[in-house]
């Protein structure tokens, strides 16, 4: 088992969330549920930005509950502000190797390779403001590639993109996760994202994160809480 949430109890003011499940290695998991249900809270706890009230988070059997965010074996993409606006695409990606940006020539070459792999060859000297939304997402993906962490957390990073562009980005992420042998958790409010990206889905609703279940089956025959969220259109 790659990721294990052991009787995890989260609290944020009046809001609480419980989770107790495992995610298999190399799985791609969608995290869906009504807005305000705690999807991002769950990711924040796994990433180390929120200290759990109780319970443990384990990665490959190792307890990582007390580690600071930067030391955890994972990369995270937020809803926005994934790139530093004052750094070029190349520098932003290079942060994945070393945040001090003191890199050897060989390492800079790796940065360029990573940028090329996400389709940004030749755009490395641009700052984020000079890149489109999709290109910005690709820079963040290149950084993830360079960080070489085995768990990837995605907190609706492509929500602002149009449907076609978003689909492209999800396919690219899936391809990278597959090729690098990573495990990925994707938060989304769109069941289509889950269908497209994740064989498994975690439903977060009513203060609880359910264990991952096969996506197609779940969406085809949703439990009551999910059904209410999906409505008739699902």
């Amino acid at each position: 088992m790659a990721l294990r949430l052991e009787q995890l109890h989260l609290r944020l003011g009046d809001f609480t969330l419980d989770a107790d499940f495992e995610v298999p290695a190399r799985a791609r998991v969608a995290v869906i549920g009504p807005s305000g249900a705690g999807k991002s809270t769950l990711l924040a706890a796994i990433a180390g930005f929120l200290k759990p009230e109780s319970g443990r988070i384990l990665w490959e059997g190792r307890d990582i509950t007390a580690l600071p965010p930067g030391k955890r074996p994972l990369s995270i993409l937020f809803q926005d502000n994934n790139l530093f606006p004052h750094l070029t695409a190349r520098q932003n990606a290079a942060l994945g190797i070393r945040p001090s940006l003191r890199l050897s020539d060989e390492e800079w070459a790796r940065v360029d390779t990573a940028l090329a792999r996400v389709g940004l060859a030749g755009l490395g000297d641009r700052r984020p403001a000079a890149l489109s939304g999709g290109q910005q997402g690709r820079v963040a993906l290149a950084r993830m590639l360079l960080r070489r962490r085995s768990l990837m957390l995605l907190d609706e990073p492509f929500a602002a993109l149009g449907p076609a562009l978003k689909a492209d980005m999800l396919d690219l992420v899936a391809e990278i996760v597959e090729a690098e042998g990573m495990t990925a958790l994707l938060v989304s409010h769109d069941p289509e994202d889950a269908r497209r990206f994740a064989p498994l889905t975690v439903v977060v609703a009513e203060g609880r994160a359910a264990p991952p279940a096969p996506t197609e089956a779940l969406l085809g025959n949703p439990p009551p809480a999910l059904a209410a969220y999906l409505g008739n259109g699902a």
């Binding site: 990433a47 180390g48 930005f49 600071p68 965010p69 930067g70 030391k71 990369s75 995270i76 937020f78 502000n81 994934n82 530093f84 942060l95 994945g96 945040p99 001090s100 960080r147």
Partner: peptide
């Protein structure tokens, strides 16, 4: 950007 910096392990002078 604080969380981004944290997640990348940026500390001190860096």
């Amino acid at each position: 950007y604080g969380r981004l910096a944290d997640s990348l392990g940026m500390k001190g002078l860096t």
